[in-house]
Design a protein around this nucleic acid. Structure first.
Lengths: 339, 339
DNA sequence: GTGAAAGCGCTAACAT
DNA sequence: ATGTTAGCGCTTTCAC
């Protein structure tokens, strides 16, 4: 089952391998006649150039590594789709790695991608640690962070304005008259989780509303955990007038907990969230949320990474760029106006 | 930004490149002393073997191509996760390609993967056509079809028993007294869509229930299309007592259409589906469905593909294997008992 | 136990 | 316009 090589084609077409290479790549003059013959041979033999050999010689692979916490999460995969939509047009292909929010897996994936000599890596990191990322950059691999950034660290990054939108979201419910507001936080060691919490605190502070410590819950971006936390809160008799969930999965868990306690949204408790909950259309009430456009974020990351690869080839070094997308607030039916 | 090579290591450790290779691969005797020196040099230089060069020499890449219709669909990505969970343990990495149910994109992806010399390809095809797949196999690339198979064509395949579970599902509602049953089909040119329709017809026939042509709808596995079709049906005054949706996305569309018409599920119309609708827990009523285990399917496909790669390396040719998973019927609250 | 060298399939500089 | 050849970074056979 030996695969056809450029040599076989050369032989069949009675030319040198160099000539075959020239017609494949169409980058040097070849007479029409020989070109024709070579093309004929290629077709007859059903020859396909060996990408591996090409990569070795050319020193690039046309592969981009994508490392994300959960390939089963539609939000992350919409980012992936956005990336693919732009890079595939330039012939790039994506190697996908799943980390399950696990730093060790992340480090391992990065190592493998580096060995595979991908031309660049797009990463949604699960840690605030940056040593493993610095190492990549030292090796000369372009890295773009997406969705989550790392503090005090200069790489290209595409993120949402998490602080701002959290501030906006919190302010929205404050203006509706809420003061007893509970927040279900995500992972506080990743930027999205942290900044959403910060935005919340800023808005509360601005309105001089004290934050009750029992109203600060930790949901780890996980539906089940959020469910349990809120369930416990309600069982203990606490009654916030509103709950903020720092992502869609947790919002789903929170919603379930509230409904199971026979409380009504928004009559008893209002609910707002980051990202749209799944199947929103079929769920009552529709939840007010911060609308994040994963596909767009992916596209931006794709463009950025292509640019970086290009700079890299030309030996250019650009300062890390930060693209901040501003998601909008979608007001639906899950917030009650108090007073 | 030149990367460290085996040569640099050899120089630093004062040995030949062959020796360095030997300690990297740990496959030939090396004295402890030299091994130590080499390891030291590797560490100091932060050397990472060039996977591309390795692949060229060894004639395998440790890459597996995965081609699916929609990387944003959690069902497909749970298959992907299942695959990853088994192949990553053996050092394989996945190149992911999205086809949008488009044959041209599928063909193009396959071509690129073949050029990249992936060790195998796992494919959920969007067509009944098989020429492009045969070509791959002729090139000697192991191919495993997943979720969807192709008729009259002998490759390894991992699928659900779509006919059987559709038959089961249909029978279930027939036994509940339904006779005016409407089916919203998926793509009829892919096996899942076709076989689900066949299973439906078989059950109906067995019970001597005539199928009304106006109750055969085409939803193309697409939520929006299913919504429109059912909406039209209801607007025209038709009233099936039950609707079968051939996948979860279409079930969601159907549900929305029914509810918008101010009809009740299951009081006015019963609804059953393939695959669980998203966020089932928060939706009333909970829909009776056929439970497909994507992760398991992925694992099976992963095991199969590893086996095939192995056979391929050893020049073995095995007959195509067909692994059929039997999904179960999950009974919830969306079917009314008639009479 | 170790080194020299051929060669994987291709590209590109150099020669003609 | 075309051919010859070195070499990308590695593995592995052969020799010592």
């Amino acid at each position: 089952m030996k695969r056809i090589t450029i040599k076989d084609v050369a032989q069949k077409a009675q030319v040198s391998v160099a000539t075959v290479s020239r017609v494949i790549n169409n980058n040097y003059p070849v007479s029409d006649k020989t070109r024709h013959n070579v093309l004929l041979a290629i077709n007859e033999l059903n020859f396909q150039p060996n990408g591996i050999a090409r990569s070795l010689k050319r020193n690039f692979t046309s592969m981009i590594g994508l490392v994300i916490p959960d390939i089963t999460n539609p939000y992350f995969m919409s980012i992936g789709k956005g990336i693919e939509s732009v890079v595939s047009k330039r012939g790039y292909v994506i190697i996908l790695c799943n980390t399950d929010e696990n730093l060790d897996k992340e480090i391992n994936s990065l190592k493998i991608l580096s060995e595979k000599r991908v031309d660049a890596i797009i990463l949604t990191t699960s840690s605030e640690d940056n040593d493993h990322i610095k190492e990549l950059i030292n090796k000369g691999i372009p890295v773009v962070l997406v969705d989550r950034k790392i503090k005090g660290f200069n790489t290209d990054v595409v993120i949402n304005d998490n602080f701002g939108s959290s501030y906006l979201l919190t302010k929205h419910i404050i203006q509706k008259g809420h003061r007893d507001i509970c927040i279900v936080n995500g992972l506080l060691n990743v930027s999205t989780g942290k900044e959403r919490f910060e935005g919340f605190k800023a808005a509360m502070e601005e309105h001089n509303i004290p934050i009750k410590s029992e109203f600060i819950l930790n949901g780890n971006f996980n539906s089940k955990i959020a469910y349990n936390e809120v369930k416990k809160l309600l069982k203990n008799g606490y009654r916030p007038t509103a709950i903020i969930a720092a992502n869609n999965l947790m919002a789903e868990g929170v919603m379930l907990a509230i409904l199971e306690e026979k409380l009504s949204i928004p009559n008893d408790i209002s609910l707002v969230a980051f990202e749209e909950i799944r199947n929103q259309e079929l769920i009552t009430p529709k939840v007010t949320y911060i609308n994040q456009n994963g596909f767009l974020m992916g596209q931006k990351a794709g463009e950025l990474v292509l640019e970086k690869i290009n700079n890299n080839l030309n030996g250019l070094k650009r300062h890390g760029r930060e693209i901040i997308l501003v998601p909008d607030l979608v007001i639906r039916d899950s917030v009650k106006t108090l007073n």
